[in-house]
């Protein structure tokens, strides 16, 4: 049967697949401008970008995981767990050490380390124990979610008042009027794009997702690269949490709910293939912004009944993906 597939079918070179997400983003911005004059206000733009940062930072990591043919459903719960643990430990330290900057630094280090460790656990079980990524991370998703509920005793973990005031600027302040979450998100996005496009690691991720056997026969350390994608994702979850906690200073069982699906949706809207083999970080950034903007637009207008918010999001996600598939990036 192999002969049939070798028949060359010319695919258009300048394809909409590349620009479809950008077109969608521009259309959304135009709609926003038409519907509400405040849409382009400094405050609104800053709000949207800053709130995109958490899922955006996680989605950058998810891009690598998906490109390498993997999946991680646990990131939302993982974020909640890391946030919960961070708050709990910071509160304990405040009692014993009397608060101050060191507590915040320890909290940040703890969040980064816990994220990294959680990603490592996911990765090692997927690569060494050979458990299907979908099932494994579905399992750890439940585990982290239960752990944070347990840590919070079913309620909400809140950072002590003093610490909250001290830590608060990490979300709300910035330089030159650009808040820290936006800066961190932008820097990570640029780094991510460079790593994906111009390093051996990024190339190896795409090769593994495209055909794991070919990668192995080409002496790519398949298992190690796979593991690294999950560790990277876990670490980015840690960074997202470091940005998230100062916002409301609390974590509960509902923190990070459905973040994993939003991150995956953003990655796919951005043009990364769900089955792996091709990924682009800039696309993911666009995807995250599209998702955030839809929510923002719906809140800024009475255009549709709030009951239909989910439907509008669903339609836009499907449209963005259909646009790409139809224009030839079927592979």
């Amino acid at each position: 049967m192999s002969m049939a597939t070798t028949a060359p079918t010319r695919r258009p070179r300048v394809n909409l697949a590349v620009i479809a997400p950008i077109v969608a983003l521009i259309v959304l911005i135009l709609i926003g401008m038409a519907l509400n004059p405040n849409f382009l206000s400094y405050a609104n733009i800053t709000n949207v970008l800053a709130r995109s940062a958490f899922i955006g930072i996680i989605a950058i990591g998810m891009t690598f995981v998906i490109t390498a043919g993997g999946l991680d459903l646990s990131v939302g719960s993982m974020a909640a767990f890391v946030a919960g643990l961070m708050i709990l430990v910071m509160n304990m330290l405040t009692e014993s050490m009397g608060g101050g900057l060191p507590v915040i630094l320890i909290g940040i280090a703890l969040a980064l380390f816990t994220g990294l460790a959680a990603g490592f656990v996911n990765g090692i079980l997927i690569t060494r124990a050979g458990i299907e990524a979908f099932i494994l991370t579905l399992g750890t998703m439940g585990i982290y979610r239960s752990l944070v509920t347990w840590l919070a005793d079913g309620g909400t973990l809140s950072l002590g008042y003093e610490m909250r005031e001290l830590y608060r600027p990490v979300y709300y302040d910035g330089i030159l009027g650009i808040s820290w979450p936006i800066i961190v998100f932008a820097v990570l996005a640029i780094l991510g794009e460079i790593v994906m496009r111009h390093t051996a690691f990024g190339r190896h991720c795409a090769a593994i997702g495209s055909n794991e056997k070919v990668a192995r026969y080409s002496s790519v350390a398949v298992l190690r690269v796979r593991l690294m994608t999950y560790v990277l994702l876990g670490t980015l979850v840690g960074i997202a949490v470091v940005m998230y906690v100062p916002r409301l200073g609390s974590a509960s069982a509902t923190t990070g709910l459905l973040w994993e699906l939003e991150a995956i949706a953003a990655v796919i809207i951005g043009g990364t293939l769900l089955k792996g083999g091709f990924g682009r970080v800039w696309g993911t950034v666009v995807g995250v912004l599209i998702l955030s903007l839809i929510g923002n637009l719906l809140n800024l207008t009475d255009f549709v009944s709030p009951y239909l918010n989910g439907a509008i999001q669903g339609v836009v996600i499907i449209l963005a993906v259909v646009l790409q598939r139809n224009t030839g990036a079927a592979r």
Partner: peptide, 23 residues
């Protein structure tokens, strides 16, 4: 002037309030 679902969730409510404040 506006009524929407915050889903008993802090993060959703935060985003919703931000947008209402802009609007």
């Amino acid at each position: 002037v506006a009524m929407d679902h915050g889903n008993w969730n802090r993060d959703t409510a935060f985003n919703l309030m931000q947008d209402w404040l802009s609007r």
